[in-house]
Simulated assay, not measured.
Amino acid sequence: MKLPDGTEHDFVPQPADVQEDLLRRDFTVNAMGLTAARDLLDPAGGRADLRAGRLRMVSEENLRADPLRAWRAARFMVTLGFKPDPETEAAVRRIAADLAAGTLPMPAAERVRDEMQALLAAPEAARGLLALENLGLLALTLPELREGQGVTQGGFHHLDVFGHGVEALHQLLARMPDAPLPLRWAALLHDVGKPRTLDRNPETGRRTFYGHDKVGAALTTQILTRLRLPGDEVKYAARLVGAHMAQLPADDQAARRFAHRRRDLLPDLLRVMLADREAARGKDSSPAGRYAYMLAMNRVLEALEAQPAAPAPLLSGEDVMGLLSLPPGPRVGEVLRALAEARAMGEVQTPEAARAWVRDWAAAHPAA
């Protein structure tokens, strides 16, 4: 029904027995209604639970009828601050165990995605991840993230890989409460590749995670695709994960280069990197080190502010092909990218200078 003010409302036929319908709901706080005379219908005692901040199931049978309600329990705990009563918490854990065993069917990925997105959008999203783990639901949703449990790191890190990822999400939201969801996913998953790249030096015992950024980007793509996130959000989060180990610049020229090469990820990439850094409080971490890190980030931000958009190209692909007698192909793109960086760095500023620069660059960088 469309009202005069333009708002629309959907109405469903009233069930034959309203009380019976309410008793089929998931939690008592959702099992209340009003009559036309505005009398409260509360067959499950939801009003008292609402006042007490208590999350109580109407029945375990109702939760099992739609296992997605287990994820909803975690969301209500985080977004509404409800505390589950012991019976409800135990029932959710049993449902999670049955889902893991395959004796209950998993909800559709799109429905799990919607619950996860709502949970991740909450100010206390990091606590929500811990609630999912406590209830046995994280293993059903983000098993790759759980691989970091018990994987210690040392150095700058005081938490295992799993705890560090959750803390990075917390640090991001402490500084940017309105962070968009792809950025939240990137902060949470930035080190998801570490368990699969762990290597230990047999002589020193030192642990390394070479290539974890690239493995993490691939895993992020896999995870978010499985959850049916939009493709552009999957790609963006994965690119942030893949770039989070970029070396911050030591001077202004390097800052301009950093900003040019990663312009389409900025300033979000810096936010992930800062969350990563601030989530680490190991023996190698110090106030002086964190201050130096902030100075390097400020250099990038200043470079980005000075040149918020890439300068207009000085030569076209056809120009490059004519200058170097090249056919269309990857080599043309390689030359154009190098020229664009030189232009952004102020090394070349006119088409005439660009032609000379391209000839010199091609001679110094022969095709493989």
Results as ranks from 00 to 15, higher is better:
Leu188Trp: 08
Phe162His: 10
Glu133Asn: 09
Gly155Val: 10
His158Arg: 06
Asp160Trp: 00
Val192Cys: 07
Gly155Thr: 10
Ala187Pro: 01
Leu173Ala: 01
Gln149Ala: 14
Leu132Ala: 09
Pro143Ile: 13
Ala179Phe: 12
Val151Tyr: 05
Asn201Trp: 13
Asp191Phe: 09
His157Leu: 01
Ala186Val: 09
Gly154Thr: 04
Gln149Tyr: 08
Glu133Trp: 02
Gly163Lys: 00
Glu124Gln: 15
Thr204Glu: 11
Ala179Arg: 07
Ala126Asp: 12
Leu169Arg: 01
Leu132Trp: 02
Ala174Gly: 12
Thr204Val: 12
Arg175His: 12
Arg146Leu: 15
Leu181Trp: 00
Ala186Pro: 06
Leu140Glu: 07
Asp199Gly: 02
Phe162Asp: 02
Leu159Asn: 10
His164Pro: 03
Thr208Asn: 12
Thr141Lys: 04
Arg196Phe: 15
Pro180Phe: 07
Val151Pro: 03
Ala168Met: 03
Leu132Tyr: 02
Leu137Cys: 13
Glu147Val: 02
Gly205His: 14
His164Tyr: 07
Val151Gly: 06
Gly165Glu: 03
Leu142Arg: 06
His170Gln: 13
Pro195Phe: 11
Thr208Lys: 13
Asn201Lys: 08
Arg206Gly: 07
Gly154Leu: 05
Asp191Met: 02
Leu140Arg: 08
Asn201Val: 08
Arg184Cys: 06
Val161Arg: 00
Lys194Gln: 04
Arg127Gly: 15
Thr197Tyr: 13
Arg206His: 15
Ala187Ile: 04
His170Thr: 05
Leu198Arg: 15
Ala179Glu: 08
Asp199Thr: 13
Thr197Ala: 02
Ala186Tyr: 14
Pro143Asn: 13
Asp178His: 13
Gly136Val: 11
Asp191Trp: 07
Gly163Cys: 06
Leu129Gly: 01
His170Trp: 09
Ala122Asp: 12
Leu129Ser: 01
His157Glu: 00
Leu188Asn: 01
Asp178Asn: 12
Pro195Gln: 05
Trp185Gln: 03
Ala186Arg: 02
Glu144Lys: 13
Met176Tyr: 10
Gly128His: 00
Gln153His: 10
Leu181Ser: 04
Gln171Lys: 14
Asp199Tyr: 15
Leu172Lys: 03
Val192Ala: 07
Pro123Cys: 11
His158Phe: 09
Asp160Ile: 03
Gly154Ile: 06
Arg207Phe: 15
Pro182Val: 02
Ala187Gly: 01
Arg206Glu: 15
